[in-house]
Write a protein that binds this DNA or RNA. Structure first.
Lengths: 202, 202
DNA sequence: CGTATCGAATACGTTCCTGTATCCGACCAG
DNA sequence: CTGGTCGGATACAGGAACGTATTCGATACG
């Protein structure tokens, strides 16, 4: 059966990816080695090179997988929201893209890496756009339910992503500071407000 | 003269730092080696170890130096602004913290690095706060001149930094997209607007 | 069953990098 | 001019990681 991979192979691959996630989070991608990943996964380097041609390739595969999963999580979390309760919908949207320390470290380093490689950069930009476009409709419909309409959806999307990323660093740098978290949420509200206008009631 | 360093030593040190900046920007801190830095600087590893005990130490020194310089640049740029021209003051403030590709890559990686190390994390958080507090007054006085007062300065400061960082990534990922840059500036204006309220005229 | 194939393990040579211990030259003081 | 010291160069031994070529065992299939 061409195009199929054996279960054995798939399991090995997955364990390598999982191990790599841990190693990258602990020592950073740059400082990670093929050997460390293999040790952690319980395989030898032979197994690694039978599945990936380089650490870079694995890195990309890992990022694809994780960001796809996150995108799925977001879509799923937003699929069964209560249309009558826009407040909780927005809360669900924010919760769906949580500030995860380890994952932030990895994406930060991957972003830096991607900025050095035009091909990767485009892949990353596209993925960012996909995530933005998945989340955006939720906010738009929620706002509509609150009697507000969004004029420029792209602008709102970019603003939300920027605020999400920018404030995530602050929250992670000062994890014990409740005020920082509060300001983060306030900023979200302010942006939603600034990018939508009250509708004439029907 | 205790506490002093010879000129020769200072020059060597500086050349090593400059070379390191280039190397880090090109291959990333994690993938950089002592040898690469020395080759680039035109020294041997002996000179390196006579100045730094490890790449990590140099990395920290480099970041200190650069971020201090940037802080100085900001302060200087904002020292001689025209008080009668708040528009250009804000423009100067934005220009003072430019979106520099190489520098962004390094700080991104350093941030990830710092998040793994509580001591470094606190150093970084303090530095971020210093930068924020240096820029903040400019915006506050500029807004006042425009007849608006800022109620919560900390909130505005955090918001500006978050927007700056969050949108910087977007700009770097889509360097040719003018719309992204435009949205970035619009977001700045929106934030300035949201975090200030019109004053009763005197 | 037996056999063919697939995938992980092994083993190898090589390159790169590390850190230290020592050397040598330049610069300064007297 | 001369001795001392400071700072970068040299040299050395060791270790880590790489990528490949090959082996060997397991699994699927006739």
């Amino acid at each position: 059966m061409p195009g199929t991979v054996s279960k054995r192979r798939a399991r090995t691959r997955q364990r390598l990816l999982d191990a790599a996630l841990e190693v990258f989070a602990e020592v950073g991608f740059g400082r990670s080695t093929v050997e460390q990943v293999c040790d952690r996964a319980g395989f030898t380097r032979g197994a690694f090179y039978s599945n990936f041609s380089s650490l870079d390739e694995l890195f990309l595969a890992l990022w694809e997988e994780r960001s796809a999963r996150m995108l799925g999580d977001v879509r799923r979390a937003l699929a069964d929201i209560d249309p009558a309760d826009p407040e909780s919908a927005v809360r669900a949207a924010i919760a769906a893209a949580p500030v995860d320390d380890a994952w932030y470290r990895i994406t930060a380093e991957f972003t830096a890496h991607a900025l050095r490689n035009p091909g990767l950069r485009r892949v990353m930009a596209a993925r960012e756009r996909a995530i933005r476009d998945a989340i955006l409709p939720v906010f738009v419909t929620a706002l509509r339910r609150l009697g507000r309409r969004v004029s420029d959806e792209s602008a709102l999307g970019d603003a939300l992503v920027a605020v999400h990323d920018g404030t995530a660093v602050q929250v992670l740098l000062q994890p014990d500071d409740a005020a920082v978290r509060a300001r983060r949420e306030a900023l979200f509200r302010n942006v939603l407000d600034a990018y939508s206008t009250p509708m004439e009631s029907a």
